[in-house]
């Protein structure tokens, strides 16, 4: 079975973000980078699928050379080979452009199952996975929190609002977008990290792929306005506790 998992490298969300000089994106310098959280669930599920029914897992990532670090983690988690689409401007590309690049690579490869995260943590658009499936004319099921494979079909649970889940079945080929709660991603072991260094990591220059026009334009990026009236308490825990109790006494009835 041929399996593809698409991952993205994103900044650690605990980072202190600054706006870049152009005012349309965050400053990419001075950030710690990691695998998009939702993509970790995708990698884990792809590797489990391989462990269950056999096959070959390709991990694909778009970005500058630095994304190879994140790809190595996916390889150490159990992916068999990596495809790096080298594009130092990918962060400015919109979801359709990204999906189109992946679709062009994947079109003639005959992947049976494609795994992606449900969204990236930085853009949060939640579009690339579904668009990719649409471009490849394959089924897509989003936001899955449970996954089973049996005899050429997957049965998954989609997470809906209000704690309800929907059970959905689809025959291969299928693309699923993975949500928190699907699985617990494994930690790469040292032997697997060593093994990963020997795995194939193919680089394709983005300019070798057909380019598509962007559909949208980012006018600006900014920090949200802080809520007026929000009060910050800082200092020693003892002093914060006293001030907090005084505020609760004054502003609420819970200590009455």
């Amino acid at each position: 079975m041929k399996l593809l998992v698409c991952i993205k490298q994103v900044p650690d969300m605990e980072s202190k973000f600054r706006i870049d000089a152009d005012g349309v994106w965050y400053d990419r310098g001075d950030l710690a980078w990691r695998m998009n959280e939702y993509d970790e669930y995708a990698v884990e599920q792809a590797v489990r699928q391989k462990e269950q029914a056999g096959g070959d897992v390709t991990v694909l990532c778009i970005g500058s050379d630095q994304v190879k670090e994140t790809m190595k983690k996916a390889l150490a988690m159990g992916c068999d080979r990596g495809v790096h689409i080298a594009d130092s401007h990918s962060y400015m590309k919109d979801p359709y452009q990204i999906a189109a690049m992946i679709a062009e690579f994947a079109r003639d490869k005959g992947f049976d199952i494609i795994f992606t995260g449900m969204q990236s943590q930085d853009r949060g658009s939640g579009q690339v996975g579904v668009m990719l499936a649409e471009l490849l004319d394959m089924a897509a099921i989003t936001t899955i929190v449970d996954y089973t494979y049996d005899n050429g079909s997957v049965v998954v649970q989609r997470e809906l609002e209000g704690g309800v889940k929907a059970k959905v079945k689809a025959a291969l080929p299928v693309l699923v977008t993975c949500q928190l709660g699907l699985n617990t991603p494994r930690y790469p072991t040292l032997p697997n990290i060593m093994k990963a260094k020997k795995k194939e990591l193919l680089t394709i220059e983005a300019k070798m792929l057909q380019s598509t026009d962007s559909m949208q334009k980012t006018v600006k990026m900014a920090l949200p306005e802080k809520r007026v009236g929000g009060l910050f308490l800082e200092g020693e825990p003892d002093s914060i506790a006293d001030r907090l109790i005084a505020i609760l006494k004054e502003k609420t009835s819970v200590l009455a």
């Binding site: 919109d94 979801p95 359709y96 999906a99 949060g124 658009s125 939640g126 579009q127 579904v130 668009m131 649409e134 471009l135 897509a140 099921i141 989003t142 936001t143 989609r158 997470e159 809906l160 609002e161 929907a166 559909m215 949208q216």
Partner: peptide
């Protein structure tokens, strides 16, 4: 921007060659 909306919207965007702006 719900489990129904984010599942369906990108399909429409692709077929209509339209921009999708999420959330």
């Amino acid at each position: 921007h719900s489990s129904y909306g984010w599942d369906l919207a990108p399909r429409i965007a692709v077929r209509e060659k339209a921009a999708q702006i999420s959330e």
